[in-house]
């Protein structure tokens, strides 16, 4: 099986996640693109764990840790976004300068 194709998909998800993370104007969309990047890392971990390490499966365990950290990151990020939205009535990235003043 050509597992390079799965690596191509992972690279595609990573680059489009970087693009969306840089160019997005809303915080929620930036968080979504961050999830895409973490998922591309997970695809790589699971694929290499299946190909190279099918006895030990340590890549699967690392991907589970990445999933748990992503869950924590999404909870914290959305709480911060809702708090900013309550204070500023806006979630645009270039207007969230609460720490300036």
């Amino acid at each position: 099986m050509m597992f390079e194709h799965v690596l191509f998909l992972s690279v595609y998800l990573f680059s489009i996640g970087i693009y969306g993370l840089i160019t997005s104007r809303k915080m929620v969309r930036a968080l979504m693109c961050l999830e895409l990047i973490l998922n591309s890392v997970n695809i790589n971990l699971v694929t290499f764990s299946d190909i190279f390490d099918s006895r030990q499966l340590k890549g699967d365990i690392f991907s589970i840790f990445v999933i748990a950290v992503a869950a924590a990151e999404a909870a914290i990020g959305l709480a911060i976004v809702s708090s900013i939205h309550r204070n500023r009535k806006s979630t645009r990235i270039n207007q969230s300068n609460l720490l300036n003043n």
Binding site: F3, V6, V28, L31, M32, E35, N39, N42, V46, T47, S49, D50, S54, L57, D60, S63, I64, I67, A68, A70, A71, A74, A75, L78, V81, S82, H85, T91
Partner: peptide, 29 residues
């Protein structure tokens, strides 16, 4: 790619928790 547990964890945590959380955040804001 033979990783059933990670697939189940992906469905449960990403689709069931994070994506629903993001959709609720989008709806609230």
């Amino acid at each position: 790619s033979n990783s059933y547990f990670v697939a189940a964890a992906q469905l449960l945590i990403y689709v069931g928790a994070i994506n629903v959380l993001i959709i609720f955040a989008v709806m609230f804001m």
